[in-house]
Deep mutational scan, measured.
Amino acid sequence: EVTIKANLIFANGSTQTAEFKGTFEKATSEAYAYADTSKKDNGEYTVDVADKGYTLNIKFAG
């Protein structure tokens, strides 16, 4: 089991951190699914992958 950390960075400057656990593939998939659901309210996003994929910096356009 691994933990994927997602740092969500919103257009207004606020941030949120979420953690997803499971296999690398499952946790990563859940992090992207979470970003997709947040996209409806926060606009399109880009992802900067860090820490060999264990940290995702997800920046929303607003």
Rank of each mutant, 00 (worst) to 15 (best):
I4Y: 00
F10M: 08
T3K: 08
E44K: 07
G62S: 10
T15A: 08
A35V: 07
Y32V: 06
A27F: 02
S38I: 15
L8R: 00
V47C: 07
T46Q: 09
E30L: 13
S14I: 14
A6R: 01
F10I: 02
E19M: 12
E25V: 09
A33V: 08
K21M: 09
A11N: 08
S14V: 14
T3S: 08
E19Y: 15
T55V: 11
D41L: 14
Y54D: 03
E30T: 06
T3I: 13
L56S: 01
G62D: 10
G43W: 05
E19L: 13
N42V: 06
T15P: 05
S38T: 12
Q16D: 09
N7V: 15
A35H: 01
G13C: 09
T17Q: 11
K21A: 07
K39Y: 07
D41K: 12
T17H: 12
Y45W: 08
A35S: 04
A35Q: 01
T37N: 15
V49E: 07
N12G: 07
A6F: 02
V49G: 04
Q16R: 12
A35C: 09
K21I: 12
F10C: 06
T28F: 08
L8V: 06
A50Y: 10
N42R: 08
Q16F: 12
L8P: 00
T46R: 08
T17F: 11
E25G: 07
E1P: 10
K39A: 14
G43I: 04
T37A: 15
K59F: 15
K40L: 12
D41P: 05
E30S: 08
D48W: 10
T55I: 10
T15F: 12
I58W: 00
A27H: 00
I58S: 01
V47Q: 01
I58L: 06
G53Y: 02
T28N: 06
Y32N: 03
G22D: 05
E44V: 09
E25I: 10
F24D: 02
G13E: 04
D41N: 11
T23V: 07
I9D: 03
T23N: 08
V2F: 06
A18R: 15
L56R: 01
V49W: 10
K40T: 10
A27K: 00
T3P: 02
N57K: 04
E19P: 02
T28I: 14
Y45G: 00
K59E: 07
L56W: 03
A33Q: 11
G13M: 05
N7T: 12
S14N: 12
S14E: 13
T28W: 10
G22H: 02
Q16N: 09
E1W: 14
E1D: 12
A33P: 01
K26D: 13
T37K: 15
F60N: 00
Y45N: 00
T15Q: 11
G22S: 04
G22A: 05
I4N: 00
S14Q: 13
T46H: 09
A18L: 15
N12A: 05
E25H: 08
G62I: 08
T3N: 06
V49I: 14
K21Y: 13
N7P: 00
Y45I: 03
F10D: 02
K26P: 01
F20C: 04
S29K: 15
S29H: 11
K52A: 14
Q16Y: 13
Y34S: 04
K40A: 13
D36T: 06
T23A: 07
L56P: 02
K21S: 11
L56F: 04
Y54A: 05
L56E: 02
A61K: 13
T55P: 01
E30V: 05
T23Y: 06
A31D: 01
I58D: 01
S14H: 13
A18I: 15
A33S: 09
Q16L: 14
F24N: 03
D36F: 05
F24C: 08
G22R: 00
Y34H: 07
L56A: 01
I9S: 07
L8M: 09
T23S: 11
N57A: 04
T55R: 04
A61S: 13
K40I: 13
F20W: 04
L8K: 03
A31T: 03
F60Q: 01
A35G: 03
D41E: 14
D36A: 07
Y54V: 05
K26G: 11
G13W: 04
K39V: 14
N7S: 06
E25T: 09
V49Y: 09
D51C: 06
D36N: 11
K40Y: 10
A35W: 01
Y34T: 04
G22V: 02
A61P: 08
D48P: 00
T3Q: 05
F24R: 06
K39D: 04
T28A: 06
E44Q: 10
E25S: 09
V49M: 08
Y32A: 03
F60P: 00
N42P: 03
N12D: 15
E25N: 08
G22M: 01
N42I: 05
D51R: 02
T23I: 07
Q16I: 15
D51A: 03
K21G: 05
I58F: 15
K26N: 12
D51I: 02
T17V: 11
G13R: 05
E19W: 15
G13I: 03
K26Q: 13
F24H: 06
A31E: 02
K26M: 12
A35F: 12
G13L: 06
F24T: 04
D36M: 06
Y34R: 04
F10S: 03
